[in-house]
Amino acid sequence: MNIRHQFLFLLLLSLVYQCKDEKKTVPLNLIQKIEKSTPLKVEKAWDSLNKHNVEVFFKEYGKQHKETKVIISTDYGDIQLRLYNDTPLHRANFIFLTKIQYFDTTVFYRIAKNFVIQGGNSDNFQTIKDRYKYGNYKLPTEFRKNRTHSYGALAAARDWKNNPDKQSSPFEFYIVQNKKGAHHLNNEHTVFGEVISGFSTLDKIAELKVGIDEWPEEDVHMKVRILD
């Protein structure tokens, strides 16, 4: 029974009980009126993101949201990023998560000096709630020969186990901090953007003290906003 039919059933049941008490019947014209005023809702595939419609959703979302520049603000300064149009699913995904303010509940949770800083997750309840809401979906790879792990490259994190297609995590990302790059990760993770301003902030964050799990001793919160 769909939502519409459930609604009609409960409403008619309520009317029947009322009419039983009053020893009346439900008028036919009232039933017809309810039918006409309760249209069946039809959702297009890209109207509601879930793990089954990822490509359809982000292809359509990307057409409607063409922004390519974002800024990550932290207590240590700002980092401006340019997202690539030739990695359209990853670009659209990052814009989508920015606009719903997902990243604002997350932190840079891994800092590996002379390698990468990694963010997009936290133990915040809202972070967990948002990930669950959209079904912890994955993004298909968008490897490009001209998009490599150079200094300042923005790339998607991913699971290495049970992930033969190297699908990306949509929520977690990292920025290459090593000035020589991290080219051993080429064709292992999708590079979908680059730092265009704020390299000093990137290097400053990389200097923070961390524990044995590379989690910084003090959380590095972020706010991400669209620039253009």
Rank of each mutant, 00 (worst) to 15 (best):
Q118Y: 04
N146V: 06
K69I: 04
D75C: 05
F96W: 15
D75R: 12
P164I: 03
G135I: 05
A153W: 05
F143S: 10
K166A: 01
F115I: 00
F94L: 11
E60N: 06
H65G: 11
P140I: 11
Y84Q: 10
N146H: 14
E55W: 02
L49Y: 13
I79L: 10
Q64W: 02
E60R: 00
Q167F: 05
D123N: 14
N124K: 13
K129D: 11
R131D: 00
R82F: 01
K133M: 08
N50R: 01
S122H: 06
D104G: 08
A156G: 10
Y76V: 00
T87P: 04
I100F: 10
N146R: 11
H90S: 09
N163M: 11
H90M: 07
Y134D: 04
K63H: 09
L97R: 13
F103K: 07
T105S: 15
H52I: 02
K99V: 03
L139C: 05
I111Q: 04
L83V: 09
F143H: 08
L81Q: 07
Q101C: 11
Y61P: 01
T68N: 10
K145G: 03
K133F: 09
Q101I: 04
E67R: 05
L139S: 03
A156C: 07
Y151K: 07
Q118A: 11
T68W: 00
Q167H: 12
Y132E: 14
W160N: 14
N162A: 14
H149E: 07
